[in-house]
Computed example of a mutant assay.
Amino acid sequence: MKVFCSFSGGKDSMLALYYGLEKYKKVDYLFTMLSEDCIHSRAHGLPKNLLEKQAQSIGIRLITKCSSWKEYEDNFLGFLEEYVKGGVGIFGDIDLQEHLDWVENVCSKKDVEVFEPLWLKKRKDVVSEFLSLGFKAKIVAVKKDLGIEKYLGKDLTFDLADEFEKIGVDACGENGEFHTFVYDGPIFKHPVDFRVKGTVQKERNIVLELE
Rank of each mutant, 00 (worst) to 15 (best):
46 L>W: 06
134 G>V: 03
140 V>F: 04
91 F>A: 05
202 K>C: 14
102 W>F: 15
35 S>H: 08
71 E>L: 11
3 V>D: 00
35 S>G: 13
189 K>T: 13
157 T>H: 02
9 G>P: 01
4 F>V: 02
107 C>E: 02
26 K>W: 04
171 A>G: 03
72 Y>D: 03
182 V>Q: 00
19 Y>H: 13
16 A>W: 10
94 I>Y: 01
128 S>V: 13
171 A>V: 02
46 L>G: 04
135 F>P: 00
93 D>C: 14
89 G>I: 00
121 K>D: 10
56 Q>P: 03
64 T>F: 05
35 S>T: 11
131 L>I: 06
109 K>I: 11
197 K>W: 15
138 K>Q: 12
149 E>S: 13
75 N>F: 15
205 N>L: 10
117 P>C: 14
101 D>M: 11
188 F>G: 00
110 K>M: 14
73 E>P: 05
153 G>M: 12
108 S>V: 04
96 L>P: 05
163 E>Y: 12
2 K>M: 11
103 V>D: 08
68 S>A: 02
7 F>V: 08
50 L>I: 01
40 H>L: 15
36 E>T: 13
26 K>E: 07
47 P>L: 07
189 K>N: 15
50 L>P: 00
18 Y>I: 06
184 D>N: 06
15 L>V: 07
1 M>A: 15
135 F>I: 04
83 Y>S: 03
128 S>M: 08
193 D>H: 08
142 V>P: 01
206 I>G: 09
161 A>C: 12
85 K>I: 10
74 D>C: 07
176 G>T: 05
29 Y>N: 00
192 V>I: 14
176 G>I: 04
181 F>W: 12
101 D>C: 06
18 Y>G: 03
175 N>F: 15
143 K>W: 15
32 T>N: 13
133 L>H: 04
79 F>I: 03
110 K>V: 03
142 V>Q: 09
108 S>P: 01
177 E>A: 01
145 D>T: 07
127 V>M: 10
134 G>C: 07
208 L>D: 00
199 T>F: 04
62 L>F: 04
154 K>V: 08
101 D>R: 06
141 A>L: 10
32 T>P: 07
82 E>K: 13
131 L>P: 00
11 K>P: 00
47 P>K: 07
177 E>H: 04
9 G>H: 07
39 I>S: 11
167 I>S: 06
179 H>S: 01
173 G>K: 01
90 I>E: 08
55 A>F: 06
44 H>W: 14
142 V>E: 08
129 E>H: 10
149 E>Q: 12
61 R>I: 07
152 L>S: 06
111 D>T: 02
174 E>W: 04
16 A>D: 13
15 L>W: 08
135 F>L: 10
62 L>V: 01
163 E>Q: 15
168 G>Y: 11
2 K>G: 01
106 V>Y: 02
14 M>F: 09
28 D>K: 05
21 L>M: 14
184 D>R: 02
